[in-house]
Amino acid sequence: MIAIDIVVLDYGLGNANSVVSFLKSLGCHAIASSDPKQIESAKALFIPGVGAFNSGMAKLEEQNLIPVLQTFRDSGALVVGVCLGMQMFAQSSHENGNTEGLGWIPGEVCHLQSLDADVNQGERRIPHIGWNRVSWHQGCEWRHVIDGDMFYFNHSYYFRCDETYVLAQVPGNQEQRLANIPCAVRKDNVVGFQFHPEKSQLAGKKLIVQLLDEYQIERKPLCLNHP
């Protein structure tokens, strides 16, 4: 039996299958699971998510997964949240009423409308769906590999937090009076992406490879030249 390096959390809400198939295409040993033993023995945990915040947290609670996730995070191993998976790192969310989150990265999840309204009264098309450019923080180590690349987004809510945790943002536009959307956050071993790396073709692969290498997780070599 091949040792499993990455567990993609299958908690009944989310596209665990596409994340596993993406990680396998990078040559990783990944499975979808919610078995505490398998999670415990993994080198990295991916928390995917297609869903509403309150139903996501309810699923985690129903399956008693929160203590398991907590222990995993405390071990210092890599935790990657995607979309809803990332939003659940927050302390709370305003989606469908107020719901408490995991509280791993100080911040709250708010509707995109409030972002533009607070900053400069712009109006954008919500949900924010499709391919958009992402600008990375100057201090981000993998900036040179993916800066200016397009990533795939599909969300109506965003992670509002202190800028010290923001790794990347979708640049706003003064003329359209649209604010920057924070779209990647990190606190130590907890990393979250608002966009879907597993759906972002080469850019997604280049990004995840940076993280896997930082945590020395086995993968096959990736051809990084642009076509």
Partner: peptide, 28 residues
């Protein structure tokens, strides 16, 4: 313009995106 941690004044911390014309996603 009102101050905000995510407002335009703080953008230099991130790479400038001079060639961009729109903040909206690409037409699909």
């Amino acid at each position: 313009m009102p101050e905000s941690p995510l407002g335009d004044e703080k953008v230099p911390e991130f790479t400038a995106e001079s060639e961009r014309s729109s903040a909206e996603p690409s037409k699909r």
